[in-house]
Design a protein around this nucleic acid. Structure first.
Length: 391
DNA sequence: AAATCGGGGAC
DNA sequence: GTCCCAGATTT
């Protein structure tokens, strides 16, 4: 028998293992490039179990490229609500519109064209080309970098962009003839099910015999990855404004700008406060509260033309992003009326009452289903509608 | 090369 | 608490 290289052994054994062990996932029902595309975008930095319910709802609502291309952006974001990295949804729809307009609604079997779609980077290009079209392109994600770092005992820092490039070349060289789709998925499946970050299951690994890291007893040291910086702390003040009269029982919300953090999503109005030691309770909590509520009142007056009277603290909430840690205090406020005995705060020029410029809206509980909210505000508002008392 | 983009599951 | 997940884009 001909001797087999460790590379040939790896690809052959991995592929055989995958065909026996692969999970039955919704996007593996067929090779429809659109279904593969949507799944790969959703799976970016997101676990399979988290994606599945979103994927099923999304495919039901937007079953084809054209359905997605023709939908209002707000509906797409609403379908993405809670999944995070919302630019993925906006880019995906932009890509769908490109395919609808330029490629007659058919995703082209062409690497350069697929790579040119918004939100489709090196990994997703390889995933779509290999899984949907069986083209021999590498698809290197975190799983693949971990698996190959261990099997070949590579010590390059996988946090460095250059490392992904070099591992792509290695991964491409390992693709068996005519088996790109299954091989790439097999690499990722092994990383997800066996060659896991914490306690890899070397005893059940199909390629353990020739795994360099395991042989060297170094599987727990690899891959090498520099640690991320801790998120910066931001102190924020937000407000639930409850309406009166025309707006009885409604709450004032606003839409975020169409770029940057949580782009296009809806939220409660809030402001960034100066550091102040990043604590809500220095000696002078009262001054801090009055300064925050005054600024909020000024903001809501100027941006929405609504006069408010803050009357208490609803809750404090922490929300963690990858790079920012929001420490937010949520106040409660009423809307002032012209004939009120109590003078509302920020009663400056007294603009037209209840006039709300476009990024602001009064909404009731029944409107929550219309607008996309990030998780923090979704939770706060749902608690509010359920009548939960805070503090 | 580094920062910016969410949220949650596993430990 | 930590790590990191079927990463892409911007600076």
């Amino acid at each position: 028998m001909m001797t087999m290289s460790t590379e040939q052994y790896f690809s052959t054994e991995l592929l055989a293992w995958y065909r026996l062990q692969k999970r039955d996932l919704p996007w593996r029902q067929n090779r429809d490039p659109y279904r593969i595309w949507v799944s790969e975008i959703m799976l970016q930095q997101t676990r399979v179990d988290t994606v599945i319910p979103y994927y099923l709802r999304f495919m039901e609502k937007f079953p084809t490229v054209r359905a997605l291309a023709e939908a209002p952006e707000e509906e797409v974001l609403k379908c993405w609500e809670g999944l995070g990295y919302y630019s993925r949804a906006r880019n995906l729809q932009a890509g769908a519109r490109t395919v609808a307009d330029l490629y007659d609604g058919i995703i082209p079997d062409d690497t350069a064209s697929v790579s040119g779609l918004k939100g489709v980077g090196p990994y997703t290009t390889g995933a779509i080309m290999s899984i949907a079209f069986n083209r021999p392109e590498p698809a290197v994600d975190g799983n693949v970098m971990r698996v190959l770092s261990r099997y070949f005992c590579l010590e390059e820092d996988i946090a460095r962009p250059a490392t992904r490039v070099s591992i792509e070349k290695l991964a491409a060289s390992l693709i068996p003839e005519g088996e790109a789709g299954d091989f790439n998925q097999a690499l990722m499946e092994l990383g997800a099910l066996v060659c896991t970050p914490k306690s890899p299951g070397c005893l059940t690994c199909p390629v353990m015999e020739h795994c360099a890291a395991r042989i060297a007893g170094r599987e727990l040291e690899l891959p090498v990855k520099t640690k991320a910086k801790p998120p910066r702390v931001e102190l924020r003040a937000s407000v639930i404004v409850t309406g009166r009269g025309e707006q009885e029982g409604k709450v004032l919300v606003r839409q975020r700008p169409d770029s940057g953090l949580l782009a296009g999503m809806w939220e409660l109005p809030h402001i960034l406060l100066p550091d102040g030691g990043k604590m809500w309770f220095p000696e002078s909590e009262r001054e801090r509260n009055s300064e925050a509520t005054e600024q909020l009142a000024r903001l809501v007056d100027e941006e929405a033309g609504v006069l408010i009277r803050p009357h208490g603290i609803r809750e404090d909430a922490d929300h963690l992003f990858s790079h920012i840690h929001w420490k937010m205090r949520i106040y409660e406020a009423d809307t002032g009326k012209a004939d009120d005995a109590v003078e509302p705060l920020a009663a400056a020029e007294a603009p037209a009452p209840y006039h709300v410029s476009s990024p602001y809206r009064w909404i009731g509980k029944e409107d929550m289903g219309e607008l996309p909210f990030p998780n923090l505000f979704l939770r706060i508002l749902n608690d509010y509608w359920e009548g939960k008392r805070q503090r």
